[in-house]
Write a protein that binds this DNA or RNA. Structure first.
Lengths: 120, 120
DNA sequence: CCAACATATGAATATATGTTCATATATAGG
DNA sequence: CCTATATATGAACATATATTCATATGTTGG
C-alpha cells in the first residue's frame, strides 16, 4: 500500500485500509477514459442499432438511414463518431460509402451485454 | 422478409433487400433500450470507477468519495442511478451504507471491454 | 434531547450530446 | 457542362447529464 496515497484518506474518512486496497483495483486514468468512451459510444440507441445492423453485411449510409427511419445527416454524424473510435470502417464506391464493423470485438461486447439484459 | 416493412424501403433508397435483411438482425426496441441504458451507465468515468472499486469489497459512500477524491453528494447521486439499474445493491449498518455489486455480470462486461481497450 | 456524523435528495448550473437544417463536396449520367 | 444523387459537415437548438450547494433524514453517543 502506498503511504503517500493513504495520507489523504486518513484525514477524510474512516476506512483508509479499505480505500487504499480498493484504489489498487482501479485501472489507470487512460484506461478509464478509453473504456468509458467505448461504452458511451455503444450506450446510445442509434449507434447501437447501427452497429448491430452492420453485424453481417456492409451497408451504405442511405441504407442505414432507411433501415432506422432516420435522416441521412443524423446517421452520418453518428458514423463519424463510430469511425473516430475505429468501431466502423468504410470504403467509397462511386457515390456511395459502404460501412462495416472495424473489428468483431465490439460486436462480441454488444452480444455479451445483450445476454445480460435478456437474462435478468 | 416482411412485405409491409419493405414497402417503405423501396421508395426511399436503392437496396431494399440489404436493408430488410439487415433489419432482421436488430434486437427489438425494448432490448435496444435496455442495452443502451446499460452501456450508458457504464459509459461514465465516475460510475465506471465506482463499479471497479466495488469489484472485491463492499464500500461505504464516504470511502468511495475519498477513493475518487469527489464529493459525497456526487457519489450518492451516481449510486442512485446504479441502484436503479440494479447494478449495485447496498445494506445499511448504523450511519453507513455499504454498497456492493449486484451481480458479477456487469463486472465481466467491464473486464471484457477493458481487454478491448488495452489490446488495440 | 442535542450535537456530530453519514447519507439522500431537490434545485440550480454548466456542459455534453443528438438531431435537424442548410450547405458543401464529390461522383455519375445525359 | 449541368443536374441529380450520395455523403459530409458546420451551426443551431433542444434535451440530457454530472456536479455542486443547501438541506433533509436518520443514527449514534453523550
Amino acid at each position: 500500500m502506498n503511504r503517500e496515497e493513504c495520507a489523504a484518506c486518513e484525514q477524510l474518512c474512516e476506512h483508509p485500509h479499505i480505500i487504499c486496497s480498493a484504489k489498487q483495483q482501479l485501472p489507470d486514468d487512460a484506461a478509464i477514459r478509453n473504456l468509458s468512451e467505448l461504452f458511451k459510444l455503444v450506450g446510445d440507441p442509434t449507434r447501437l442499432k447501427i452497429l448491430t445492423l452492420l453485424q453481417s453485411h456492409e451497408l451504405c449510409v442511405c441504407d442505414i438511414a432507411a433501415a432506422l427511419s432516420m435522416g441521412q445527416s443524423a446517421i452520418s454524424h453518428q458514423l463519424r463518431l463510430l469511425r473516430g473510435a475505429r468501431l466502423v470502417k468504410f470504403r467509397k464506391e462511386g457515390k456511395s460509402a459502404w460501412y462495416s464493423l472495424d473489428d468483431e470485438h465490439v460486436l462480441r461486447l454488444i452480444l455479451h451485454g445483450l445476454e445480460h439484459v435478456q437474462h435478468d
